[in-house]
Design a binder for these strands. Sequence first.
RNA 1: GGUCCGGUAGCUCAGCUGGAUAGAGCAACAGCCUUCUAAGCUGUGGGUCUCGGGUUCGAAUCCCGACCGGAUCACCA
Length: 606
Amino acid sequence: MTLEQQITTLAKAAVKALYNVDAEDSQIQLQKTRPEFEGNITLVVFPFVKTARKAPQVVGDEIGNWLLGNGEGLIARFNAVQGFLNLVIDDAFWVKQLEAIDADDNYGRFQSPITHHQSPIGAQPLMMVEYSSPNTNKPLHLGHVRNNLLGYSIAQIQEANGWKVVKTNIVNDRGIHICKSMLAWLKFGNGETPETSGKKGDHLIGDYYVRFDKEYKAQITELTAQGMDEETAKREAPLMQEAQEMLRKWEAGDPEVRALWEKMNSWVYAGFDETYRRLGVSFDKIYYESNTYLEGKSEVEKGLASGQFYRREDGSVWADLTRDGLDEKLLLRSDGTSVYMTQDIGTAKLRFRDFPIDKMVYVVGNEQEYHFKVLSILLDRLGFPFGKELVHFSYGMVELPNGKMKSREGTVVDADDLMDKMVEDAKEISKDKVNTLQGITEDEANEIARKVGLGALKYFMLKVDPRKNMLFNPAESIDFNGNTGPFIQYTYARIRSVLRKAGEREEKDGEILETRGLDPKELALIQRLTEYPAAVRTAGEEFSPAVICNYAYALACDFNSFYHDLSILNEPDAHKRALRLLLASNVAKVLRSAFALLGIEMPERM
RNA sequence: GGUCCGGUAGCUCAGCUGGAUAGAGCAACAGCCUUCUAAGCUGUGGGUCUCGGGUUCGAAUCCCGACCGGAUCACCA
């Protein structure tokens, strides 16, 4: 039972005994005691002031005294200040908490989600998390990085919350945008390959996507100069015509187009795999739109047959969503080709055929909120039970100082370049630390720089509220000081160093712990450790890695303050030394666990 | 125009299910390394929580209305 639960029970008994009030849980308002007052936990007494017909100060004192007399030693002292009852919890309680944390190898992990009704009793419910979902026409950029980091972290967090999680990726490997790259490569590529150019496959393809856009724009300019209006020019430009023709050929299974498509996609996948590996993200099941779009088409046909959708005179198929307060939505183009929505319907169907999914989560940017609103309705209308329940985990955009990134205009921060830069910076900074890193090999140094550089990047992106847009300024390097990944990694490395030294000195496990006269810094640390499971729950409910970041930062701050003020190994009192060692070791354990939820690795030294 | 999201220190962000004097980091300034890793610790300065109403013992937080910024409403994805 947590401290909050115990105090809640006691507080209810107190107001019942004192004022004959049957308090609701919601009336027992507990908060952490502010540092300027003595105490660990604070009961807000305002909710009882009215019924007690006494001044807040009096009510505070009365409840405080009752708790002191009936708390079975849990409460050591109290002070009441203007309606706030600050409770000092007995040291022995905290030491017991620490021992319990130490004994729990899965501290902060839960057996099952808080509430779940669909699954049979006892079965672990399954959550599928879709993230990444790249197009195979360009390399990954900073926006994808945010998506990948969020998706991976959300999966870890939900797993810790008791879900069985299947991480999935839908690769957008077909469509007009792919044809654009292919066409540009055919026309201007001179047979260039990753091998001949030395370029990573995804970057090579991306270059041709940009090339297409450049040539296409030139054609538009030319046509409008000849007097054509811009709309028509965009439609009639030869390159666009050819790209559309290529898409039709692709859908018709034209062997040449398919062969080219497979070759170019394989280059891209090799590139993506490398980027994913470096980012540290992975998938349990990958879907390809080239395999799911036909399924989507057939679902749309079924919907057409059952009267859910309708066909216009030009042959295009639409859904009328006006009764849901939305617009009409295109599902199949007049030439019969499918659109994004069609594919998503097919993908959803296959996924639910493949897995007993209880909850489907799409990690996709907030610019697609409308799309998922529509998808949810369409799936529901087509008779899929999961339609209504789907979760669009909608995150904010990454913006540059001068606005949004635009891949076609080349104003993107490339994922590979950014990772290179971060690791380089980490390496550079670590050069000043030769004294602490002496004696390590070049490989070890590189490995530390990799972990720290990536840690800085990941923490930077995960610490902000996922729903909000965030700013990235390429001109300013990502910090390694302050509220950053490296700060927390450093805290961990410090602890590991102390623990290594303790091992060398044969500090014994099982030494009796000091249980009285805890230093405020020790106590604050233990209390912070006890808050970890709640942070994991909140992060899960809110789909927010930022909650974990904030928690880990607070824990690291508490530890550094403790570390600065109190000596661990040089403490002469063996009982105190044992307590501090145990404390340090569990701080390291929780920091490591928290960072694992973020997908950030810990260096043993740095 | 409809819908959705945001507006907190010079900058980047916490806090938002109502609670005590609104917090961090960066940047600036001043201290702390013969002692467990100074990527650290301590301190100083910095605020009309966009504005105006309302709800109440109490509002950055909830409600209403403005203003500003962003997204979206495609035979794009």
